[in-house]
Nucleic acid binder design. Structure first.
Lengths: 156, 156
DNA sequence: GCATAGTAGGTGCGTGCGCACCCATCTGTC
DNA sequence: GACAGATGGGTGCGCACGCACCTACTATGC
């Protein structure tokens, strides 16, 4: 891990530290988060994310495609997640009246309650392991960086 | 996505932008990378990562557990990845003489060649979509941040 | 020596997800 | 109206991976 051979084209040391560091931090955090959510709420991170997004949405409801748009998962993945959450009575599905192809996922009272439980502890974990290592100005800087990356790479 | 209700405990706007931004950027990048590697080399990112790590290692060989240690995957996952790579003749497996429980994964000539092909293009993609958005001092700052996170969060 | 605990790697099972494809519906053109 | 193409959502199939467990081996204690 210390000496990147130059016999093949590769990242510079600096690039490797920045990009590889992001991958490493993300991987480690996700492991912790998945384990925490599984133990406390029998829930995966994608399921948690769907519930969280729904709790932010007006009327506690979102179209499946909108859920998929900024998710790690594809539409088919989201479809299955919503199906699982529906079986657990955490969301309901409802056909969209304005476009009968579409469907809404709607957070239930039980879903909101479980989300509350999940958040309480999840927020603490992410803060303890990540956010608390940075000052407010640094968090602002970081957020600005992510915006910079996302604004530029809209393609696909 | 604009108004985080305060009725349930949640991240602050700033925290959400920093942490959520990291998740978003990682997700988007991984999608691009997975697709690129699949199209050009019929290879997943974890397989690519294993080959890359082997290319860095002395003697082009690493123990399975060392491969798993800083990977997203568990030992069983790495075991299967190495199995796949072995079937594709990209690595060889060899029993470790100093500890006969252990095994080495060893990069083959074909594996190194395919890695070279994969890297050529992968590096360009990551630069174009991510690294090039930052100056050298910013990359240094970012790398320092990741070190800060990793140095503190050794537990589990 | 023997017994026990710990570790490296591999495997059966269950599951989650992407891909390709399906159907229903909307949109646009004629 | 009719039709083509695009779009939203769901599904069969295949595969990759985590979990729990197994075997083989090492390390430690007696």
């Amino acid at each position: 891990m210390s000496s990147g051979k130059t016999e093949i084209e590769a990242f510079t040391q600096l690039e490797g530290d920045a990009w590889g560091g992001l991958l490493g931090v993300h991987g480690r955090m996700m492991r912790l988060i998945e384990r925490d959510l599984a133990e406390r709420c029998r829930m995966s991170h994608v399921e948690f994310e769907v519930l969280l997004r729904l709790s932010w949405a007006a009327g506690l409801r979102m179209r499946i495609q909108d859920l998929a748009a900024d998710s790690v998962l594809t539409r088919s993945g989201i479809s299955r997640v919503v199906e699982r959450l529906e079986r657990a009575s955490l969301v309901n599905r409802e056909s969209a009246p304005e476009d009968r192809r579409g469907a809404y996922a709607i957070l239930t009272v039980a879903g909101l309650a479980l989300l509350r439980t999940a958040l309480d502890g999840h927020v603490g974990l992410v803060r303890e392991r990540f956010l608390d290592r940075f000052g407010p100005d640094e968090l602002e800087q970081m957020a600005a960086w992510w915006r910079r990356v996302e604004d530029a790479g809209v393609g696909s």
